[in-house]
Amino acid sequence: MSNPANNNTYPAYEKVMAARDSAKLTAVDYIKSLFGDSFIELHGDRRFADDKAIVAGLGMLHDTPVTVIGIEKGRNTKERMERNFGQAHPEGYRKALRLMKQAEKFRRPVLCLVDTSGAFPGIGAEERGQGQAIAENLMEMMTLKTPVLTILIGEGGSGGALALAVADEVWMLENAVYSVISPEGCASILWKDSAKAPQAAEALKMTAQDLFELGVIERIIRQPKADDKAMFESLRLLVLRTFEKNAALTDGELIEQRYRRFRKIGTAHIK
């Protein structure tokens, strides 16, 4: 892949490139490595359609049933077309919310795996209420009475990523990025020049390391390889431990903790 910033001047943009690398593991790979054969995919939002950009279902983490929801970009051209390059429509976010509500009903923890350049900006998506779908997820996830953990495994593109990231904790892979806008979009709006994306990537503070310092995420995770069984086992245990910790709280405590988590972000300078 051509990389205009391959000279260490713009390390943030190198992370952006790494997060977008088509050879890296996708949500489906993580689900397979974490849940193995126990995974059962569940489809559809019960309102309009099944959005293939979001892959979701049930799986076992050791002895614990978990609802897992991932944004899937696809691993080859054919899959990428099918998955709409990991850009979900409103029905994708509504499928996710349906399954989160189901998880709440059955007291199952929810694991979200985020990898998207953003919610799809298209005519159908607007007609079916992309903004409303995301807004509803933000509201409902904030008071979901079951533990929720989100891991950013690649790109975290704006509202389309946040719609699956109102969680008790948010973790990022060391090469993942998370931003309010793509560096290209930012550069073209602010400086009328998308070639200044590397500078924008630095300014936006979008790497896992930046976000950890800003208090937006709780943990940075080493980038695993597909066959790295030990790494996935330790990730499995880490996820389980976090679920157990939060499952021990009362509903009220859990929701208060989640509210406080977001309430405090960026308020350090505010009186």
Binding site: I134, A135, L138, S158, G159, L162, Y178, S179, V180, A203, L204, K205, M206, D210, L211, L214, V216, F262, I265, G266
Partner: peptide, 8 residues
């Protein structure tokens, strides 16, 4: 940046 997104 991300702090703006978190306001949502």
């Amino acid at each position: 940046g991300i702090l703006s997104l978190m306001q949502m």
